[in-house]
Amino acid sequence: MIVEVPGYRLAEPLGAGATGVVYDANRLADGQRVAVKVVHPELVDPQYRERLRREARAAAAVVHPGVVRVQEVGGDGNNAWLVMDRLSGPDLQRRLADDGPLEPVEAAELLASVADAVHAMHEAGVIHRDLKPANIILNEGRPLVGDFGVARQLVSLESSTGFDLTGGSSDWLRSDAPAGPPLGAMAGTVAYMAPEQWRGDPVAAAADVYALGGTLFSLLTGLLPYDRKTLPELAYAVAILPAPQPSQYGVPLAFDAVVARAMAKDPKERYATAADFAAALRAVGSVSAPPRTALNRRWLIAVAALVLVAGGAGAVVAQGKGAATEELTVCAEDATVRDAPRSRTVVATVYQGDHLTPIAPRDGDSWVHVRLRDGSTGWALTDFVRHEC
């Protein structure tokens, strides 16, 4: 990574991602404070630089109060950089981490403004491709879409993770395959990617609409749209599972339909434009709900843990009294039962249509403790064994 950009003095990094590092900087000509994003050199080739310049010019032609302005784009050799307005406010990911989820009305108003800005960029022929809370900056309380990059080509999953998604085998999607690489910090980038981006299909405005839907879910709940620990688990959820429902976390029911349509698997079933998404948000934004106390994330996790323990204890007591327990059905073609959550040790293989008895408590939302017909026990992924297939 270079640390020199002609005409600018770079200071400390403001953040880093899959495609580059953003620095606080001063322009030498007039002393103006700006933000400079330096793209990772290994991602840059002549075609990339030309595409970056072309789309930067298109983005710069759009004057919208909700878009971080790109002042300049440059590069030489294997280097490329973008010069953008320097903002002082936190991004929404930081806001969520510090203060927890937003009130529904606030989330609707804020993200509708973001969708308006995204629509303006779409009208100029520029697709963001990486919308997420971390790329929405609060500047004096007003949200601005940043890191259009500008509409850069996302780093492929293969180069980001070293995990082969195109080797001609689907074993990585099977429940008995190795867990694959942990998501870690990469979750912030891939968690909001539309199914067609995972497949490597051409990306259109509908991919940004999908990301807006995932961002809405996160703003309402403080959680990722699909909270998984490994790339295969996340890929399966994005490709197969229905959109997450904010109402499961105390959010007004009307928001479920907005998230579901925005995050539809088929791009043609999503909102036709980001402006349509904004209109839908404004329509449900007036839905009243009891105000939720602004709890920080640690407190929310603590409360959830207490509820989980209490619920698990209650279930054990109920089972001890002979209460009926609804069985789980294996929904996948086949699935494995492990000796512990996230373990690689398989104790049994079960097949589509088999029935398992759940044992409380569950290990979060990803794994469930089950008893097999022969009396043996183990842990299964909730994606593969459910009450209804």
Score class of each variant (00 low, 15 high):
238 V>P: 06
238 V>H: 06
238 V>N: 05
239 A>G: 09
242 P>G: 04
242 P>H: 09
243 A>T: 03
244 P>F: 13
245 Q>G: 03
246 P>K: 04
247 S>R: 03
248 Q>G: 13
249 Y>Q: 14
249 Y>L: 09
249 Y>H: 15
250 G>R: 09
251 V>I: 12
251 V>Y: 11
252 P>K: 01
253 L>D: 13
253 L>R: 15
254 A>P: 07
254 A>R: 11
255 F>T: 02
255 F>N: 00
255 F>K: 08
257 A>G: 15
257 A>N: 12
257 A>K: 14
258 V>Q: 06
258 V>C: 04
260 A>V: 07
260 A>F: 04
260 A>H: 10
260 A>C: 08
261 R>Y: 07
261 R>V: 08
261 R>F: 01
261 R>D: 07
262 A>I: 01
264 A>L: 06
265 K>Y: 00
265 K>Q: 10
266 D>L: 06
266 D>T: 09
267 P>W: 01
268 K>N: 14
268 K>T: 14
268 K>S: 15
268 K>M: 14
270 R>A: 02
270 R>D: 09
271 Y>H: 12
271 Y>W: 07
271 Y>K: 04
274 A>F: 00
274 A>N: 04
274 A>E: 09
275 A>D: 08
275 A>M: 12
275 A>I: 04
275 A>E: 12
275 A>C: 04
275 A>V: 02
276 D>T: 06
276 D>G: 14
277 F>Y: 03
279 A>Q: 12
281 L>V: 02
